[in-house]
Write a protein that binds this DNA or RNA. Structure first.
Lengths: 190, 190
DNA sequence: TAATAGTGTTAGCATTTACTAACAGTTAGT
DNA sequence: ACTAACTGTTAGTAAATGCTAACACTATTA
Protein backbone atom coordinates (compact mmCIF):
# COMPACT_ATOMS: atom_id res chain seq x y z
CA UNK A 1 0.00 0.00 0.00
CA UNK A 2 0.86 3.64 -0.09
CA UNK A 3 2.15 3.98 3.46
CA UNK A 4 4.39 0.94 3.10
CA UNK A 5 6.14 2.37 0.10
CA UNK A 6 6.50 5.75 1.75
CA UNK A 7 7.99 4.05 4.77
CA UNK A 8 10.55 2.28 2.60
CA UNK A 9 11.44 5.42 0.72
CA UNK A 10 11.83 7.41 3.90
CA UNK A 11 14.14 4.80 5.31
CA UNK A 12 16.22 4.97 2.17
CA UNK A 13 16.42 8.77 2.06
CA UNK A 14 16.81 9.52 5.75
CA UNK A 15 20.57 8.94 6.03
CA UNK A 16 21.13 11.37 3.18
CA UNK A 17 18.75 13.96 4.56
CA UNK A 18 20.44 13.66 7.93
CA UNK A 19 23.82 14.02 6.32
CA UNK A 20 22.78 17.27 4.71
CA UNK A 21 21.54 18.66 8.02
CA UNK A 22 24.63 17.40 9.83
CA UNK A 23 26.98 19.06 7.37
CA UNK A 24 25.13 22.31 6.91
CA UNK A 25 22.90 22.89 9.90
CA UNK A 26 19.22 23.65 9.81
CA UNK A 27 19.21 26.96 8.02
CA UNK A 28 21.93 26.36 5.49
CA UNK A 29 20.51 22.99 4.60
CA UNK A 30 18.01 24.42 2.15
CA UNK A 31 15.42 22.07 0.82
CA UNK A 32 17.11 22.30 -2.53
CA UNK A 33 20.48 21.35 -1.00
CA UNK A 34 18.90 18.39 0.76
CA UNK A 35 17.24 17.22 -2.41
CA UNK A 36 20.57 17.54 -4.17
CA UNK A 37 22.28 15.41 -1.56
CA UNK A 38 19.58 12.80 -2.03
CA UNK A 39 19.79 12.95 -5.80
CA UNK A 40 16.11 13.75 -6.16
CA UNK A 41 13.89 16.78 -6.64
CA UNK A 42 12.41 18.74 -3.78
CA UNK A 43 8.88 17.70 -4.60
CA UNK A 44 9.79 14.10 -3.77
CA UNK A 45 10.97 15.01 -0.31
CA UNK A 46 7.70 16.80 0.29
CA UNK A 47 5.82 13.64 -0.53
CA UNK A 48 7.75 11.83 2.20
CA UNK A 49 7.70 14.46 4.94
CA UNK A 50 5.23 17.16 5.69
CA UNK A 51 7.75 19.96 5.78
CA UNK A 52 11.39 20.77 6.38
CA UNK A 53 10.91 20.69 10.13
CA UNK A 54 9.70 17.09 9.94
CA UNK A 55 12.79 16.17 7.95
CA UNK A 56 14.93 17.72 10.65
CA UNK A 57 13.15 15.94 13.48
CA UNK A 58 13.49 12.61 11.72
CA UNK A 59 17.18 13.30 11.14
CA UNK A 60 17.89 14.02 14.79
CA UNK A 61 16.21 10.80 15.79
CA UNK A 62 18.15 8.89 13.20
CA UNK A 63 21.48 10.33 14.28
CA UNK A 64 20.77 9.58 17.92
CA UNK A 65 20.08 5.95 17.10
CA UNK A 66 23.21 5.97 15.03
CA UNK A 67 25.50 7.23 17.78
CA UNK A 68 24.15 4.82 20.36
CA UNK A 69 24.48 1.93 17.94
CA UNK A 70 28.09 2.79 17.20
CA UNK A 71 28.88 2.97 20.89
CA UNK A 72 27.11 -0.29 21.53
CA UNK A 73 28.95 -2.04 18.74
CA UNK A 74 32.28 -0.65 19.88
CA UNK A 75 31.70 -1.81 23.41
CA UNK A 76 30.57 -5.31 22.56
CA UNK A 77 33.56 -5.66 20.27
CA UNK A 78 36.01 -5.35 23.17
CA UNK A 79 33.83 -6.40 26.04
CA UNK A 80 36.00 -9.31 27.06
CA UNK A 81 39.10 -7.28 27.71
CA UNK A 82 37.87 -3.94 28.98
CA UNK A 83 35.14 -2.27 30.94
CA UNK A 84 32.53 -0.51 28.79
CA UNK A 85 33.23 2.97 30.08
CA UNK A 86 36.91 2.64 29.35
CA UNK A 87 36.20 1.42 25.86
CA UNK A 88 33.99 4.39 25.30
CA UNK A 89 36.64 6.78 26.57
CA UNK A 90 39.31 5.29 24.39
CA UNK A 91 37.04 5.29 21.40
CA UNK A 92 35.76 8.81 21.81
CA UNK A 93 39.12 10.30 22.69
CA UNK A 94 40.30 9.38 19.22
CA UNK A 95 37.13 9.38 17.15
CA UNK A 96 35.11 12.17 18.66
CA UNK A 97 33.47 14.47 16.20
CA UNK A 98 34.52 12.27 13.35
CA UNK A 99 30.99 11.67 12.23
CA UNK A 100 30.16 15.32 12.06
CA UNK A 101 26.88 14.81 13.81
CA UNK A 102 27.26 17.95 15.84
CA UNK A 103 26.31 20.74 13.50
CA UNK A 104 22.77 19.47 13.57
CA UNK A 105 22.64 20.03 17.31
CA UNK A 106 24.07 23.52 17.33
CA UNK A 107 21.78 24.55 14.55
CA UNK A 108 18.84 22.92 16.28
CA UNK A 109 19.50 24.90 19.43
CA UNK A 110 18.67 27.99 17.45
CA UNK A 111 15.24 26.66 16.62
CA UNK A 112 14.00 25.62 20.03
CA UNK A 113 11.00 27.89 19.83
CA UNK A 114 9.63 25.24 17.51
CA UNK A 115 8.18 22.77 20.02
CA UNK A 116 8.86 19.75 17.84
CA UNK A 117 12.50 20.62 17.51
CA UNK A 118 12.89 21.35 21.20
CA UNK A 119 11.31 18.02 22.02
CA UNK A 120 13.48 15.93 19.75
CA UNK A 121 16.63 17.59 21.06
CA UNK A 122 15.55 16.95 24.62
CA UNK A 123 14.94 13.32 23.80
CA UNK A 124 18.31 13.05 22.16
CA UNK A 125 20.18 14.48 25.13
CA UNK A 126 18.21 12.42 27.59
CA UNK A 127 18.82 9.18 25.74
CA UNK A 128 22.55 9.78 25.52
CA UNK A 129 22.66 10.87 29.13
CA UNK A 130 20.79 7.81 30.33
CA UNK A 131 23.13 5.58 28.38
CA UNK A 132 26.18 7.16 29.97
CA UNK A 133 24.67 7.08 33.44
CA UNK A 134 24.01 3.36 33.15
CA UNK A 135 27.53 2.81 32.02
CA UNK A 136 29.04 4.81 34.83
CA UNK A 137 26.87 3.02 37.38
CA UNK A 138 27.83 -0.38 36.07
CA UNK A 139 31.44 0.72 36.13
CA UNK A 140 31.23 1.48 39.82
CA UNK A 141 28.95 -1.48 40.40
CA UNK A 142 26.89 0.37 42.92
CA UNK A 143 23.47 1.91 43.05
CA UNK A 144 23.48 3.85 46.27
CA UNK A 145 21.92 7.27 46.05
CA UNK A 146 25.10 9.30 46.22
CA UNK A 147 26.63 7.23 43.47
CA UNK A 148 23.61 7.85 41.29
CA UNK A 149 23.97 11.57 41.86
CA UNK A 150 27.61 11.35 40.97
CA UNK A 151 26.87 9.31 37.86
CA UNK A 152 24.25 11.73 36.62
CA UNK A 153 26.30 14.86 37.03
CA UNK A 154 29.36 13.11 35.66
CA UNK A 155 27.45 12.01 32.60
CA UNK A 156 26.35 15.57 31.88
CA UNK A 157 29.90 16.74 32.39
CA UNK A 158 31.17 14.15 29.96
CA UNK A 159 28.72 15.26 27.31
CA UNK A 160 29.87 18.82 27.91
CA UNK A 161 33.51 17.87 27.53
CA UNK A 162 32.63 16.03 24.36
CA UNK A 163 30.89 19.10 23.09
CA UNK A 164 33.94 21.21 23.77
CA UNK A 165 36.13 18.70 21.98
CA UNK A 166 33.79 18.94 19.05
CA UNK A 167 33.87 22.72 19.02
CA UNK A 168 37.62 22.67 19.44
CA UNK A 169 37.99 20.46 16.43
CA UNK A 170 35.57 22.52 14.41
CA UNK A 171 37.37 25.77 15.22
CA UNK A 172 40.85 24.26 15.27
CA UNK A 173 41.39 25.42 18.83
CA UNK A 174 43.61 22.53 19.85
CA UNK A 175 45.12 19.31 18.56
CA UNK A 176 44.81 15.62 19.12
CA UNK A 177 46.98 15.47 22.22
CA UNK A 178 44.81 18.01 23.98
CA UNK A 179 41.74 16.05 23.01
CA UNK A 180 43.22 12.96 24.62
CA UNK A 181 44.11 14.85 27.76
CA UNK A 182 40.61 16.22 28.03
CA UNK A 183 39.18 12.73 28.01
CA UNK A 184 41.77 11.23 30.30
CA UNK A 185 40.27 8.53 32.47
CA UNK A 186 41.64 10.23 35.57
CA UNK A 187 38.91 12.83 35.41
CA UNK A 188 36.55 10.12 36.62
CA UNK A 189 38.67 9.57 39.71
CA UNK A 190 39.17 6.03 38.55
CA UNK B 1 35.01 64.34 11.84
CA UNK B 2 33.07 61.57 10.15
CA UNK B 3 34.89 58.61 11.68
CA UNK B 4 34.63 59.97 15.20
CA UNK B 5 30.88 60.25 15.01
CA UNK B 6 30.57 56.82 13.51
CA UNK B 7 32.71 55.45 16.31
CA UNK B 8 30.42 56.98 18.91
CA UNK B 9 27.30 55.72 17.20
CA UNK B 10 28.69 52.25 16.87
CA UNK B 11 29.54 52.19 20.55
CA UNK B 12 26.00 53.22 21.36
CA UNK B 13 24.33 50.69 19.09
CA UNK B 14 26.61 47.71 19.64
CA UNK B 15 25.04 46.43 22.88
CA UNK B 16 21.66 46.36 21.20
CA UNK B 17 22.95 44.72 18.05
CA UNK B 18 24.71 42.14 20.20
CA UNK B 19 21.54 41.56 22.18
CA UNK B 20 19.63 40.81 19.00
CA UNK B 21 22.24 38.29 17.87
CA UNK B 22 22.45 36.78 21.35
CA UNK B 23 18.70 36.29 21.56
CA UNK B 24 18.05 35.13 18.03
CA UNK B 25 21.28 33.74 16.62
CA UNK B 26 22.85 34.74 13.35
CA UNK B 27 20.22 33.63 10.89
CA UNK B 28 17.11 34.59 12.79
CA UNK B 29 18.53 37.94 13.66
CA UNK B 30 17.47 39.50 10.39
CA UNK B 31 18.77 42.95 9.65
CA UNK B 32 15.25 44.20 10.09
CA UNK B 33 14.98 42.57 13.52
CA UNK B 34 18.30 44.05 14.58
CA UNK B 35 17.25 47.49 13.42
CA UNK B 36 14.03 47.07 15.35
CA UNK B 37 15.89 46.17 18.52
CA UNK B 38 18.01 49.31 18.05
CA UNK B 39 15.00 51.46 17.34
CA UNK B 40 16.39 52.62 14.01
CA UNK B 41 16.04 51.74 10.35
CA UNK B 42 18.19 49.22 8.59
CA UNK B 43 19.88 51.82 6.42
CA UNK B 44 21.40 53.38 9.53
CA UNK B 45 23.04 50.13 10.57
CA UNK B 46 24.52 49.84 7.13
CA UNK B 47 26.14 53.22 7.55
CA UNK B 48 27.88 51.94 10.69
CA UNK B 49 28.91 48.48 9.54
CA UNK B 50 29.76 47.18 6.13
CA UNK B 51 27.37 44.26 6.28
CA UNK B 52 25.57 41.91 8.62
CA UNK B 53 28.66 39.80 9.07
CA UNK B 54 30.58 42.81 10.39
CA UNK B 55 27.81 43.46 12.89
CA UNK B 56 28.10 39.89 14.06
CA UNK B 57 31.86 40.00 14.41
CA UNK B 58 31.66 43.21 16.41
CA UNK B 59 29.01 41.65 18.62
CA UNK B 60 31.08 38.60 19.44
CA UNK B 61 33.99 40.80 20.41
CA UNK B 62 31.75 42.93 22.55
CA UNK B 63 30.24 39.96 24.36
CA UNK B 64 33.67 38.47 25.03
CA UNK B 65 34.83 41.69 26.62
CA UNK B 66 31.61 41.72 28.55
CA UNK B 67 31.98 38.25 30.03
CA UNK B 68 35.59 38.78 31.05
CA UNK B 69 34.71 42.12 32.63
CA UNK B 70 31.92 40.55 34.65
CA UNK B 71 34.21 37.79 35.88
CA UNK B 72 36.93 40.29 36.72
CA UNK B 73 34.53 42.47 38.67
CA UNK B 74 33.07 39.51 40.50
CA UNK B 75 36.50 38.29 41.51
CA UNK B 76 37.82 41.63 42.69
CA UNK B 77 34.67 42.09 44.70
CA UNK B 78 35.42 39.10 46.91
CA UNK B 79 39.15 38.83 46.51
CA UNK B 80 39.90 39.30 50.18
CA UNK B 81 37.97 36.30 51.35
CA UNK B 82 38.27 33.73 48.57
CA UNK B 83 40.52 32.49 45.85
CA UNK B 84 39.61 33.71 42.37
CA UNK B 85 38.81 30.30 40.97
CA UNK B 86 36.43 29.51 43.78
CA UNK B 87 34.67 32.79 43.33
CA UNK B 88 34.25 32.05 39.67
CA UNK B 89 32.86 28.61 40.41
CA UNK B 90 30.40 29.91 42.91
CA UNK B 91 29.35 32.70 40.63
CA UNK B 92 28.96 30.59 37.52
CA UNK B 93 27.23 27.73 39.26
CA UNK B 94 24.36 30.05 40.02
CA UNK B 95 24.51 32.62 37.25
CA UNK B 96 25.64 30.61 34.28
CA UNK B 97 23.75 31.28 31.10
CA UNK B 98 21.91 34.10 32.70
CA UNK B 99 23.14 36.61 30.21
CA UNK B 100 22.00 34.59 27.26
CA UNK B 101 25.26 35.14 25.48
CA UNK B 102 25.36 31.62 24.20
CA UNK B 103 23.02 31.57 21.25
CA UNK B 104 25.44 33.78 19.42
CA UNK B 105 28.10 31.12 19.72
CA UNK B 106 25.99 28.20 18.61
CA UNK B 107 24.71 30.15 15.67
CA UNK B 108 28.21 31.32 14.83
CA UNK B 109 29.45 27.76 14.72
CA UNK B 110 27.17 27.26 11.75
CA UNK B 111 28.89 30.02 9.84
CA UNK B 112 32.49 29.01 10.28
CA UNK B 113 33.08 28.84 6.57
CA UNK B 114 33.09 32.62 6.73
CA UNK B 115 36.73 33.26 7.70
CA UNK B 116 35.92 36.41 9.67
CA UNK B 117 33.39 34.58 11.79
CA UNK B 118 35.67 31.63 12.36
CA UNK B 119 38.45 33.96 13.42
CA UNK B 120 36.41 35.93 15.91
CA UNK B 121 35.06 32.75 17.49
CA UNK B 122 38.57 31.36 17.80
CA UNK B 123 39.69 34.57 19.47
CA UNK B 124 36.79 34.44 21.84
CA UNK B 125 37.47 30.88 22.92
CA UNK B 126 41.18 31.50 23.23
CA UNK B 127 40.72 34.59 25.37
CA UNK B 128 38.37 32.85 27.74
CA UNK B 129 40.57 29.79 27.86
CA UNK B 130 43.68 31.82 28.64
CA UNK B 131 41.86 33.62 31.40
CA UNK B 132 40.81 30.36 33.01
CA UNK B 133 44.26 28.83 32.63
CA UNK B 134 45.84 31.76 34.41
CA UNK B 135 43.35 31.44 37.18
CA UNK B 136 43.89 27.73 37.61
CA UNK B 137 47.64 28.19 37.61
CA UNK B 138 47.49 30.89 40.21
CA UNK B 139 45.20 28.68 42.23
CA UNK B 140 47.78 25.94 42.33
CA UNK B 141 50.60 28.43 42.58
CA UNK B 142 52.86 26.43 40.36
CA UNK B 143 54.15 26.67 36.84
CA UNK B 144 55.81 23.35 36.27
CA UNK B 145 55.08 21.82 32.89
CA UNK B 146 52.74 19.09 34.05
CA UNK B 147 50.69 21.61 35.97
CA UNK B 148 50.40 23.78 32.87
CA UNK B 149 49.17 20.79 30.92
CA UNK B 150 46.66 20.05 33.62
CA UNK B 151 45.52 23.67 33.74
CA UNK B 152 45.01 23.87 30.01
CA UNK B 153 43.00 20.71 29.65
CA UNK B 154 41.04 21.54 32.78
CA UNK B 155 40.19 24.96 31.42
CA UNK B 156 38.83 23.47 28.21
CA UNK B 157 36.88 20.96 30.25
CA UNK B 158 35.40 23.72 32.34
CA UNK B 159 34.28 25.62 29.27
CA UNK B 160 32.71 22.42 28.02
CA UNK B 161 30.86 21.85 31.27
CA UNK B 162 29.68 25.43 31.15
CA UNK B 163 28.44 24.88 27.65
CA UNK B 164 26.50 21.81 28.73
CA UNK B 165 24.99 23.76 31.61
CA UNK B 166 23.93 26.37 29.11
CA UNK B 167 22.38 23.83 26.78
CA UNK B 168 20.71 22.12 29.72
CA UNK B 169 19.13 25.34 30.79
CA UNK B 170 18.10 26.19 27.27
CA UNK B 171 16.46 22.79 26.73
CA UNK B 172 15.26 22.39 30.31
CA UNK B 173 17.19 19.17 30.69
CA UNK B 174 17.91 19.57 34.39
CA UNK B 175 17.41 21.93 37.29
CA UNK B 176 19.45 24.19 39.51
CA UNK B 177 20.68 21.48 41.84
CA UNK B 178 22.15 19.51 38.96
CA UNK B 179 23.81 22.67 37.71
CA UNK B 180 25.46 23.12 41.09
CA UNK B 181 26.60 19.52 41.18
CA UNK B 182 28.11 19.82 37.74
CA UNK B 183 30.24 22.75 38.87
CA UNK B 184 31.18 21.27 42.20
CA UNK B 185 34.67 22.27 43.22
CA UNK B 186 35.59 18.64 43.77
CA UNK B 187 35.90 18.10 40.06
CA UNK B 188 39.12 20.09 40.21
CA UNK B 189 40.52 17.66 42.79
CA UNK B 190 40.74 20.59 45.18
C1' DT C 1 24.51 83.26 3.83
C1' DA C 2 26.09 79.49 1.00
C1' DA C 3 28.14 75.13 0.65
C1' DT C 4 29.11 70.83 2.65
C1' DA C 5 28.42 66.93 5.37
C1' DG C 6 25.45 64.07 8.27
C1' DT C 7 20.78 62.02 9.64
C1' DG C 8 16.47 59.82 9.03
C1' DT C 9 13.04 57.73 6.07
C1' DT C 10 10.86 55.57 2.14
C1' DA C 11 10.69 52.52 -1.24
C1' DG C 12 12.35 48.99 -3.55
C1' DC C 13 15.55 45.56 -5.94
C1' DA C 14 17.60 41.07 -6.61
C1' DT C 15 18.01 36.87 -4.67
C1' DT C 16 16.90 33.08 -1.92
C1' DT C 17 13.84 29.78 0.03
C1' DA C 18 10.06 26.80 1.61
C1' DC C 19 6.60 24.84 -0.59
C1' DT C 20 3.05 23.47 -4.42
C1' DA C 21 0.30 22.73 -8.57
C1' DA C 22 0.08 20.19 -12.53
C1' DC C 23 1.44 17.35 -16.17
C1' DA C 24 3.56 13.25 -18.43
C1' DG C 25 5.09 8.63 -17.94
C1' DT C 26 4.97 4.26 -15.46
C1' DT C 27 3.39 0.58 -12.80
C1' DA C 28 -0.20 -2.40 -10.88
C1' DG C 29 -4.58 -4.54 -10.15
C1' DT C 30 -8.84 -6.28 -12.34
C1' DA D 1 -7.04 -3.56 -22.03
C1' DC D 2 -8.66 -0.08 -18.66
C1' DT D 3 -8.64 2.22 -14.67
C1' DA D 4 -6.32 3.89 -10.76
C1' DA D 5 -2.46 4.90 -8.15
C1' DC D 6 2.32 6.22 -8.05
C1' DT D 7 6.72 8.54 -9.67
C1' DG D 8 9.49 12.05 -11.58
C1' DT D 9 9.96 16.60 -13.53
C1' DT D 10 8.99 21.35 -14.65
C1' DA D 11 7.78 25.54 -13.48
C1' DG D 12 6.43 28.64 -10.50
C1' DT D 13 4.62 31.45 -6.29
C1' DA D 14 4.53 34.12 -2.23
C1' DA D 15 7.19 35.63 1.30
C1' DA D 16 11.46 36.86 3.43
C1' DT D 17 15.93 38.90 3.46
C1' DG D 18 20.34 41.38 2.73
C1' DC D 19 21.31 45.46 1.00
C1' DT D 20 20.96 50.12 -1.57
C1' DA D 21 19.55 54.28 -4.01
C1' DA D 22 17.63 58.52 -3.38
C1' DC D 23 15.28 62.17 -1.28
C1' DA D 24 14.14 65.57 2.35
C1' DC D 25 15.83 67.65 6.34
C1' DT D 26 19.20 69.41 9.73
C1' DA D 27 23.59 70.70 11.60
C1' DT D 28 28.10 72.41 10.69
C1' DT D 29 31.57 75.13 8.60
C1' DA D 30 33.57 78.81 5.63
Amino acid sequence: MKTDKRYEKRKEMLPLVAKAFACLGYRRATTSAIANECGVKEAILYRLWEDKKAMFVASVKYLTDNILEIWERQISKTLQENKPLEVLFDYESTHFAELGHYMIIFSGLNEVDEPDIKKVLQEMYNRIHRYLVDMILSYYGNNKQDVTDFAESTAWRLIGIGTMITIGKHLELFGDSMREKMLDKNILNL
